[in-house]
Design a binder for these strands. Structure first.
Length: 418
DNA sequence: TCTGGGGTCCTAGGACCC
DNA sequence: TCTGGGGTCCTAGGACCC
């Protein structure tokens, strides 16, 4: 019997999230095979169970699986991140009805902390599943445990045995936990990737129970403090906090492969202006300023060219960054090359409130202009107002041959009922 | 021909300082 | 001519996550 007010972590994870989002507005696809491709329609990143069952692997390139897609009459989509982000927000709003402590972890999963509830937590989790299914048609699995790592383990089993587990697995009980850890391969533990798993196996540790029993001080010296934390968490000792309030990012990156490789400098300039615009939007959204910007180009023969520029003082003004980027492009552009991808990273990030601007710095910051830009674009759609250097032709744009409409973020795409 | 994009954290090693 | 030890900061690279 557990003490009634013991804190319990839950990991709530949507099954095939992108597929669920696509089906939400296409009920005709419920029960039919659906697959979602990465940016540029490059490879498979989400699929329903049927697609998995016929042997399509996560990350498989489109051209390889095309015959299977056609043979099995699979409906496929280009990724529509605007839609997925929007559904993700609604998902978290519903989670907040069930506890005050919700920490989004990624677009399709969140950690919850249950503390002080009289109600049985398995029942509470089942109610949560039912609500998500009713309100958003999102099927989820939930794992319960005394630490985040154990909640992850529980979730792994809930997903693996969707039918018999009825979507919720509880690992608060130490006996259940022992069995679960004994049957979990070491690389299936959260935080242990391929490389670490290989090294652990070399040490004779091949399942989670063996890691649970290992000497954490020794492994901390051999690997890192993260390994020590993982071991303690497997033992039920919390080392990782909930992180309810997302902290400002320390670097902001935007990059894309081109639909077709380009060698024209003007096209590169446009693409970089686009990425700069997106980065600065994210920067302002988290109320930060950045002082450094890195421009990267990737050539067709996999060379990476990059250059790093500093502003006179931290800023969030898209115009100032655009000037720096143009100079950066001049520094690294090679006219004989063909490029397949370009990107921008901002760093040297500080909070915008309380930043003391240098009164002798005469570079023009225009906070009012940026604010108006953001307000108008959030109301009327991305790039309604934009800097001229973004251009109009987008010869560099990525492939997205089967993107679903922007059902939740574009007036013209709202579903009409006749 | 065609294989994504966006992050975090940790460690080792070099530069530099006292 | 000889030359210790401790500390900080920065960066690159590796590992992980989704």
């Amino acid at each position: 019997m557990l003490p009634k007010h013991e804190a319990t972590y839950a990991l709530c994870d949507v099954n095939s999230f992108y597929v669920a989002c696509e089906r939400l507005f296409r009920p005709d696809l419920i029960g039919k095979p659906v697959l979602v491709l990465s940016n540029n329609d490059g490879c498979a990143i989400a699929m329903c169970d049927y697609c998995k069952s016929i042997g399509i692997k996560m990350g498989a390139p489109y051209f390889q699986i095309k015959p299977l897609i056609e043979k099995h009459n699979i409906t496929w989509f280009s990724s529509n991140y605007g839609l997925y982000g929007n559904i993700s927000q609604r998902f978290n709003q519903i989670l907040q009805r069930f506890t005050d402590h919700v920490a989004p972890y990624s677009v399709d999963e969140s950690f919850l902390l249950f503390q002080g509830f009289e109600e049985d937590l398995i029942e509470r989790s089942q109610k949560l599943r039912k609500t998500l299914l009713q309100c958003l048609s999102l099927p989820v699995c939930i794992g319960l445990g005394p630490t985040k790592t154990l909640a992850k383990v529980a979730n792994y089993y809930a997903k693996k045995h969707k039918k018999s587990s009825t979507g919720v697995v509880d690992l608060r009980n130490v006996h259940h936990r022992k069995w679960a850890l004994q049957h979990l391969e070491v690389e299936d533990i959260w935080g242990i990737g391929r490389r670490l798993a290989q090294k652990l196996r070399f040490q004779g540790i091949s399942n989670a129970w063996q890691l649970h029993n290992a000497d954490y001080k020794t492994l901390q010296r051999m690997f890192s403090v993260n390994m020590e934390r993982t071991i303690l968490e497997l033992r039920g000792q919390p080392c990782l906090e909930l992180n309810q309030h997302p902290v400002a990012k320390q670097s902001i990156l935007n990059s894309r492969s081109f639909g077709t490789p380009i060698s024209n400098k003007a096209d590169l300039k446009e693409a970089l202006a686009y990425h700069t615009t997106r980065c600065c939007e994210k920067l302002r959204q988290q109320q930060s300023l950045a002082s450094n910007i890195e421009v990267h180009l990737y050539t067709k023969d996999r060379q990476q060219l990059s250059t790093n520029l500093s502003l006179v003082e931290p800023s969030d003004d898209t115009g100032l960054f655009l000037q720096a980027v143009n100079q950066g492009l001049d520094n690294i552009f090679q006219s004989h090359q063909t490029y397949k991808k370009a990107g921008i990273t901002l760093y040297g990030i500080v909070p915008s409130n309380g930043y003391q601007s240098d009164i002798f710095n005469n570079s023009k910051q225009r906070p009012e202009l940026m604010e108006s830009l953001d307000t108008i674009n959030s109301k009327y759609g991305k790039d309604t107002i934009k800097f001229g250097s973004l251009g109009f032709e987008k010869r560099w744009a990525m492939r997205a041959n089967a993107r679903s409409p922007h059902y939740t973020s574009r007036w013209s795409d709202i579903i009409q009922i006749k």
